[in-house]
Amino acid sequence: MLKKERRKMRVRAQIVEHLKIGRAYYLLGLHAPEIARTAEAGQFINIRCAETLDPLLRRPFSFYSIDRDAGIIKILYEVKGRGTEILSKYKVGDFLDIMGPLGRGIDELDNGGIQVILLGGGVGGAPMAALAEKLHECGMRAIRVLLGASTMDRLIPFDVFKSLGIEVSAATEDGSLGYKGFVTDLLKKQLEKFERKDCLVYACGPKEMLKAAAEICRNKGVKCIVLMDALMACGVGACQGCALKVRDEDGVETYVRVCTEGPNFDAREVVWE
C-alpha cells in the first residue's frame, strides 16, 4: 500500500495548447514533464480550475495523450459546470496547479494476439486516445475504435486514431454521422465477428452506455474493462468520496474508491445500480 518513491506529483504546469474542438470540447495541452514521465493511459490528473474558494474542489480529467519525450500531457474536456467553464478561459502560457498521475493505469495489455475494441461515448472517448497510443506502442495492431455521441458535434476527433492507422466507426443518435443509433449497437455487431476468448473491450462514457456495454460483453463472454467517472474530492484515496459498489467472485459487495482502486474496473465486478 505504501510506496516509498514519490511518483505522484503536484506541479504548476504551463499551458502549451488550448483549443476548442467542435462545438462542445476543449483540448488542453500542459507542459508537465514530471507527470508525463510516469503517466499511463487510464490515469488522470486533478486540476485546480479556480484560485478562489468557489468552486472549491479540483476537477479530475483522464489523459487524452501522453508525450514522455516532449514532457507534454493532454486532456480533452467538455464544459459541464463552473469548474470547466473557468478552465476553458485559460490561455496558452498560463499556469495551472495540477496533481497526478492519479489512479491505476491500464495494465492488462499482455494477452498477445487479441482483438481490442475501444469504445467511447461522448467525451468518454478521450482516454481511449491515450490507450490507443499505448496499445500501438506495445505493438498491438488489431485495434478497432467505436465512438458514439448524441450528434456529430459531440464526437471526439478521429485524428489520433487515424494517425495510428486505426479504423474508427462512429454512431450518432441523430444519424448526423455514421450509424444512426447507439454506439453499443455497433459493439454488438462487432462482437458477432469475433471469438470471445480473443477479444477485449475497453469502454468509457456515460453510465448507461457502460452498463449496456457490460451486459453485451457478458452475454458474449467477452472481457470488458470500464473506466468509471465519479464525483471526487481529493483524488488520492483519502476522502472516500468517490465510492463505487463492486461485487467480488464470492458475490460479496463492497465499496471501492474510483480514484485509487480504479478508475478502470472489470465490468463484471461493477454493481450497476
Binding site: L57, L231, M232, A233, Q240, C242, A243, K245, T254, Y255
Partner: peptide
Amino acid sequence: REGNPPPRIIE
C-alpha cells in the same frame, strides 16, 4: 464499515 451509498460528496 462499508460506508454510505454514493453519491457521497457534493460541492
